[in-house]
Amino acid sequence: MINTEGMVAETAAKIYTDLCGREVPHEAAAGQYPQALWDALAENGLPLAWVSEDNGGFGADYDEVFGAIWVSAEAASPVPFAETLIANWLLDRAGVAIPDGASTFALLDGNAASVPFAGTADHVAVYDASKNAIALYKTADASAADGQALSPDSDTRLDFSTATPVASAATNLSRRAVEALILTVRAVQMASAIEAALNLSIAYVSDREQFGRPLSKFQAIQHQLAVAASESAAATMAATQAASALARSADDPEKAWHEAVVAKVQIGHSVEAVTVPFHQVHGAMGYTQEYDLHHYTRRLWAWRDTLGNEHHWSKTLGAELAVTSPDQIWKGVTTGAWIAS
C-alpha cells in the first residue's frame, strides 16, 4: 500500500479535506480555479517536497511524497500538484532555480510536447533527451495547438520552437530515469482514482433502490463491482511496487524503470476493466456532468495515455524480453532482473 501516514501525506490530506470538497472539481471544470487550494499547498511547501534543501526544498523521501500524490488524486485535485512536484524535481536535478507558482512538465518530441495543466501552470520544465538538457519556460511563451483535451486537466500540445527559455542546464538524467518518475507518479494517481471511483460506486449502489431493494443486492451489480475491486487491488499493488522501487533507487531512478513500466501496463489494463462497470452501475447518473464520477474516469483515461498507453509499453517490454537469454527469463519473472541491458 502507498504510505499515507507520513507528515507530507497527512498535511496534504488535511489541506484537500478542508479546501477540496466535491464542489471544487466541478467549479474548476467551469473555469473557477481553486486558488485557495493551491496557495495552501504552496504555503506548506508541499510542491517543493522533492527539491533539495540547497535549492529551497526539504528533500523528502520518495515514498512519503507518493502518499501526498495519492490523496491529491483521491480528491480529484484540479490543481497541478503532482505536475509541479515532477517539474521541480527535474529542475532541481539540473541545478536550475525553482520558480514561484505552479509548474508543469514536458518531454520534448521535436519542438513540441504534450503538457498537462498547460492552461493554469505558470512555468513548464522541459526535458530534451536529444540535448541532455532541461529548460524552464514560461507556459504563456509557448504556442498551443488546437484541440480539446480529454482530461479535465487541460492536457495540451505546446510548441516551444519560438519560445526563449527562462533558464536551462545540462543534466545527467537519462530519458528512462525521467520516464520512471513520471510513470510511477501516474501509476499512483491512477490506482488512487480507481479506488476512489470504486468507493463512489459502492456507495451509490448501496443507497439507490430498484424494485424495492438496493442495487447492491442484485447479483449482476455485485459481480461487476467484485471484478472492479479485484482490479483496484491489482492497480494498488502495482503502484506500490513501482513507488517502492523508485524509493530504493533514489540516486539512480533509471533502476526503477522496469517496475514503473510494468505498473503502467497493469494499471492501464485495469482502467479499461473498471471504468465501464463504474459508469454502468450508476446508470444514467454516471454519464451526467454534475455527478462526481467523470472527474475520476476522464483523468484515468488521460493518465493511461501518458507517455504511451499499456499497448505501447507492452511492446517495449516484449521487445526487450525477446533478446533476453532463455536462462534469464525465469529469474526475471521471479526477481524482475530479466531485462537485457
Rank of each mutant, 00 (worst) to 15 (best):
340 A>S: 10
95 G>M: 04
235 A>R: 00
232 S>F: 07
45 G>K: 00
2 I>C: 03
154 S>P: 04
302 A>H: 03
303 W>Y: 12
18 D>T: 04
222 Q>T: 08
329 I>M: 11
242 A>I: 00
53 E>K: 09
86 I>W: 01
310 E>I: 07
233 A>D: 11
2 I>V: 09
48 L>A: 10
232 S>Q: 07
19 L>P: 01
22 R>E: 13
292 D>L: 12
298 R>Q: 11
27 E>W: 08
139 T>E: 09
291 Y>K: 07
60 A>G: 04
34 P>S: 07
134 I>Q: 04
34 P>G: 05
290 E>A: 10
57 G>C: 10
282 H>A: 14
5 E>T: 13
334 T>D: 14
265 V>E: 06
42 A>K: 02
296 Y>H: 08
196 A>I: 05
178 V>Q: 01
222 Q>R: 07
11 T>W: 10
277 P>I: 04
251 D>P: 07
304 R>M: 12
175 R>C: 08
254 E>H: 05
101 G>D: 07
59 G>A: 14
247 A>M: 06
212 G>L: 07
323 V>H: 14
267 I>R: 00
110 G>K: 01
336 G>N: 07
85 L>S: 03
267 I>N: 01
259 E>S: 08
137 Y>N: 03
47 P>H: 07
227 V>A: 13
280 Q>C: 15
14 K>N: 15
5 E>L: 13
315 K>L: 15
291 Y>M: 13
324 T>S: 15
319 A>N: 09
62 Y>P: 04
14 K>E: 15
256 A>Y: 02
99 P>A: 13
122 D>C: 15
112 A>W: 04
29 A>Q: 10
87 A>E: 03
127 Y>R: 00
135 A>F: 12
123 H>P: 05
57 G>H: 03
285 M>E: 13
44 N>I: 03
113 A>Y: 01
99 P>T: 06
16 Y>A: 00
151 S>C: 14
308 G>D: 03
271 V>A: 12
225 L>H: 00
337 A>V: 11
174 S>F: 04
80 P>H: 04
327 D>K: 09
131 K>C: 12
107 L>Q: 02
27 E>I: 05
23 E>G: 06
159 D>V: 03
66 F>S: 00
288 T>L: 14
62 Y>W: 14
138 K>F: 10
58 F>D: 13
277 P>W: 08
